[in-house]
């Protein structure tokens, strides 16, 4: 990438303390290991992985909604690791989040007008007479009727609520949005509408997205690049179509082949065993316990991300198989 990245994250780690093992030593559960990535202005980075892969944790860590440790975390030239709370509050205008559950993400007591006004008030935008037209503009932008403004969330369907959540994120005109499973809870026909809405917004406003999902086809469609996570480690990262159609990591390959599809021949790579507990991760490559191609060498070193093509990297020792 030639342009300076909008978001640059190096060696992001996150652990939770889970009680004590001895009198003084705290036990901790590491859910992110050494995750590095960047997002260019206007780019959509897809984040895929199964439950427990840490994909939502990454989204919340970037937004500083949870604490994390990293060597570098820069957004729009500002260092998020050393930023003051006051500066961070101002910077929040630039980075927003859309949640998965359209039912939990809206305060049941607030009208849509109040929900959107809160966003504008937080940054002193469109005060006074400019407020009304801006609210109408926002609901129209996400394909809702302006008469909905004075209704409360329980009067809406899941798809409509998700649109309201998107309008709230867009209200402050951010340059970066974390979409945390933003379409996963929606029915197929509504999901397509919301995906189209996001694609339109991206074309119109040039917003960058971190698109978190477990649905590979959705991620492939919406993203420029895709990053595949397994138990908090990056397995593969590369251009969306390349990762999807010619994966270089056995885990990505298994994930793509496990996805039920109407159109593809099922050449299924069957994984054996269960996802290991984060408390007892295998040595070396964490995927080796389920990998059909694992060798003794896989137990010894943690495979680094190696370049396997243009902008395409994979963390697998066995470059000979895929």
């Amino acid at each position: 990438m030639t342009a300076a990245p909008l978001l640059d994250v190096q060696n992001l780690e996150k652990s939770y303390s889970i009680g004590r093992s001895g009198l003084f030593s705290k036990r901790s559960l590491k859910v992110l290991h050494d995750v590095s990535f960047s997002v260019a202005p206007g780019e959509v980075l897809g984040l895929v992985g199964e439950s427990g892969s840490g994909k939502s944790t990454i989204g919340r860590a970037i937004l500083r909604l949870i604490d994390s440790q990293s060597d570098v975390m820069r957004f729009g030239g500002q260092d998020l690791n050393s930023i003051s709370p006051a500066r961070m509050r101002i910077l929040r205008k630039e980075m927003q989040i859309i949640f998965q559950d359209p039912y939990a993400s809206l305060d049941p007591r607030k009208t849509i007008r109040a929900v959107l006004s809160e966003a504008l008030d937080a940054h002193g935008l469109h005060q006074g007479a400019a407020r009304g037209p801006r609210l109408i503009e926002l609901v129209t932008l996400v394909g809702l009727d302006p008469s909905f403004l004075d209704r409360r969330p329980h009067e809406f369907s899941g798809g409509q609520r998700q649109r309201i959540g998107i309008a709230r994120a867009l209200a402050v005109e951010p340059s970066f949005i974390v979409c945390d499973e933003a379409v996963s809870a929606l029915d197929v026909s509504i999901q397509a509408q919301v995906l189209n809405l996001l694609a339109d917004l991206r074309a119109k406003t040039g917003v960058s997205l971190l698109f978190i999902s477990h649905d590979l086809s959705v991620v492939r469609y919406i993203s420029d690049r895709v990053m595949v996570l397994y138990l908090g480690r990056v397995m593969e990262v590369g251009p969306a179509d390349r990762v999807h159609f010619s994966p270089k990591h056995p885990y990505t390959a298994a994930l793509v082949s496990a996805e039920p599809s109407l159109h593809r021949e099922n050449r299924r790579i069957r994984l054996t065993g269960e996802i290991p507990s984060p408390l007892a991760l295998p040595s070396g490559c964490i995927f080796r316990s389920r990998c059909p191609y694992a060798q003794p060498a896989c137990a010894e070193t943690v495979p680094p991300l190696q370049t396997v093509g243009d902008q395409h990297q994979s963390a697998c020792l066995r470059t000979d198989i895929l």
Binding site: R60, R89, Q96, I97, F99, E118, A122, R168
Partner: peptide
């Protein structure tokens, strides 16, 4: 969480 992400005091 959304309110916090918005920067509401």
């Amino acid at each position: 969480e959304a309110s916090r992400a918005l920067g509401t005091p």
